[in-house]
Design a protein around this nucleic acid. Structure first.
Length: 578
RNA sequence: GGGCACGUAGCUCAGUCCGGAUAGAGCGUCGGACUUCUAAUCCGACGGUCGUGGGUUCGAAUCCCACCGUGCCCGCCA
């Protein structure tokens, strides 16, 4: 209802200013502080004071008087407090919110008939997913979910680098070294087994005998050339390595869960001729230059040229990515990419080049995040430094299990069997990891520390999940939730506050989708949880008189849908008991 | 050296895009609340030159400039 009320207030305020012959381009609509009883306010009087020649409070009073409150549905009164015009919610605002929240799909916005492809993770298939990379799938999946809630038709893509030098090194190493020369794998899983070849290959190239390294380099070059020339056998050799490793990584990502509609391979754009075709078009651009035997774009506003064809005639990652993005534009209305901040320059150049090729780059947006580091430094697959995401998730689940078990003895209700304990441990453990990452602004740096990442207390996933379990606990005691609940029975301020917070959920989704900021949904879940806890403390539900009980049950049901959907929008599960 | 990001309570973070009402949480510390729908909860206290210095404005954590600190980038790597 918040979205509807805001629209109504905008119209009413504009009409009022128009009546007073005042400019309407700055309505100054904002949300008042908590202790003010209004849902919306306007600070326009500050700016209009000069124009009118009267002090702001006087202007505010005139504006408030000029508003035709009787014609408004969701506003009961327009009052003033100093220079502010405050808009108070009407009974209809509360009543319709209570009604809307009884829908299982509350918060889901109408279909926009717009397709969006969200590309995220796209980590090189070289080994186990480590925590340094984990921010990408968690943010990416949340962005996709939020867009889905906001009414977009979303596809999730993982762009697979199966054509670069690292993959050629990996293929060579896999075919060259014998398993008996390798250490035991850290886990019984394909990517853990395979990464041993990759690490061995890299250290060989660094420290090996000069002649042998030269032979190896020739072999690696042959693989790269084979891919460039479209040699079928080379594709198959590389694909064996890539698909095996990717399969293992996919299993780990699935635990988050981060799932994909499509794994788009880079070689696809080499094989179908689109990269060659793109190179032709790039060469025809005004800013295309041939320098040092290589084709480059001398992009305006960039210090560094963008090389798109090496002196040996082969394409580069960026060249193929340009073809990839044109393919996205052909198939989707919008494209979002989640990238590490180290790709910022590359992404800006990509965008500039796409623009020069005649694409509408307004439909392309990036979300950048900064790396997760360890207190002692960065994480690297090649060096084998870092914490594997599998280990983090295992530890999170183990700690959550301990928490559940330690609480079994003093539970006042709801016996849990072994299956429940395991379910809760997974929901809470993985939820805590996701929530910890998704709730922070992506651009801020994170230093990974076990205890901080796995804190199950306030401002964490379990804090929010707990109110869902509490709602479920109450609702379990009744046969049905009354459908004709009367919000008038919700007289306590805690109940009204809760209803106000619930009313905002669709607006939270809309804004998070618009700004591609899922962390604001996480912030919202915390506010919702705090407000519900106040209600829970002050307003007994089951023992209330019939009319109050019915209304409070409806409010609990609405809270349950809201918290479940808000958590779902950021990819955190909502346990029915804890 | 140049570009981009970040700097808010002892610690971890919201708020910054779109300037407005006494700058909000959690953790930690201290003190309270389970015969009442789950205490992974709640209530209270303590805690802040919003990196620094200028500027714009009736009003700046928020916009502009300079500086300091930290991170990332500046490959015919990805």
């Amino acid at each position: 209802m918040f979205l509807q009320m805001r629209a109504e207030v905008e119209d009413a305020l504009e009409a009022a200013l128009d009546t007073l012959d005042l400019p309407t381009e700055d309505l100054g609509i904002e949300e008042p502080p908590e202790d003010v009883d209004a849902v919306l306010a306007s600070s326009a009087a500050f700016r209009l004071a000069g124009e009118v020649g009267a002090p702001p409070p006087k202007v505010a009073a005139d504006v408030a008087d000029a508003i035709d409150v009787d014609s408004l549905t969701y506003v009961s009164a327009a009052t003033t407090q100093g220079p502010y015009v405050n808009f108070l919610p009407s009974d209809a605002y509360f009543a319709e919110t209570l009604d809307a929240a009884t829908d299982d799909d509350f918060g889901r916005l109408p279909d926009r008939e717009t397709s969006v492809v969200v590309e995220h993770t796209s980590a090189n298939p070289t080994g186990p997913v480590h925590v340094g990379r984990a921010r990408n799938p968690i943010i990416g999946d949340a962005v996709a979910r939020v867009l889905d809630y906001a009414g977009y038709d979303v596809d999730r893509h993982y762009y697979v680098n199966d054509a670069g030098r690292q993959i050629a090194v990996f293929t060579w190493a896999y075919e060259t070294f014998d398993e008996s020369d390798l250490p035991e794998p850290e886990r019984d899983s394909p990517e853990y087994e395979m990464v041993r070849y990759y690490r061995k290959g890299n250290s060989f190239l660094e420290d090996g005998d000069a002649d042998e390294v030269e032979t190896a380099e020739a072999e690696i070059q042959a693989i790269l050339q084979g891919l460039e020339e479209g040699d079928e056998e080379t594709y198959e050799r590389v694909a064996e390595v890539v698909d095996t490793v990717l399969g293992g990584m996919q299993a780990t990502l699935g635990r988050l869960p981060a799932e994909f509609d499509e794994f788009v391979k880079e070689t696809r754009f080499m094989r179908d001729g689109s990269t060659d075709e793109l190179v032709d078009r790039l060469q025809g651009l005004d800013c295309a230059v041939y320098e040092d035997d290589a084709w480059q774009l001398d992009l305006p506003d960039f210090e560094k040229n963008l090389v798109f064809l090496r002196s040996d005639g082969t394409s580069l990652y960026t060249t193929r990515d340009l073809a990839h993005h044109e393919w996205k534009f052909d198939n989707y209305d919008r494209a979002v990419t989640v990238l590490g901040e180290d790709h910022k320059l590359q992404a800006d150049q990509l965008s500039a080049a796409l623009d020069l090729l005649g694409n509408d780059t307004d439909q392309l947006r990036q979300v950048f995040y900064s790396w997760v580091n360890l207190p002692e430094g960065g994480m690297s697959t090649r060096e084998g430094t870092g914490i594997d995401l599998d280990d983090l998730l295992d530890e999170a689940i183990a700690r959550a299990r301990e928490e559940v078990e330690s609480r079994l003895d003093d539970r006042s209700r709801g016996e849990l069997d072994d299956e429940d304990v395991e379910r809760i441990a997974h929901q809470v453990g993985i939820g805590a990891v996701r929530y910890d990452i998704v709730s922070k602004q992506p651009t801020k740096g994170i230093t990974f520390e076990w205890d901080r990442a796995l804190d199950f207390e306030a401002q964490s996933a379990p804090y929010v999940q707990y109110i869902h379990a509490r709602c479920c606990g109450i609702l379990d005691e009744v046969e049905t939730v009354p459908s004709d609940a009367d919000f008038d029975a919700l007289t306590e301020p805690e109940a009204r506050d809760l209803l106000r917070v619930i009313a905002q959920f669709p607006a939270v989704i809309e804004e998070a989708a618009e700004d591609l900021q899922p962390h604001s949904v996480a912030t919202y879940t915390r506010t919702l949880a705090e407000t519900f806890n106040a209600f829970y403390r002050e307003c007994p539900v089951l023992d209330a008189d019939p009319e109050t009980r019915a209304a409070r049950l409806a409010l609990v049901a609405g809270t349950r849908h809201t918290v479940a959907n808000a958590l779902d929008a950021i990819g955190v599960e909502a346990p029915t008991s804890m």
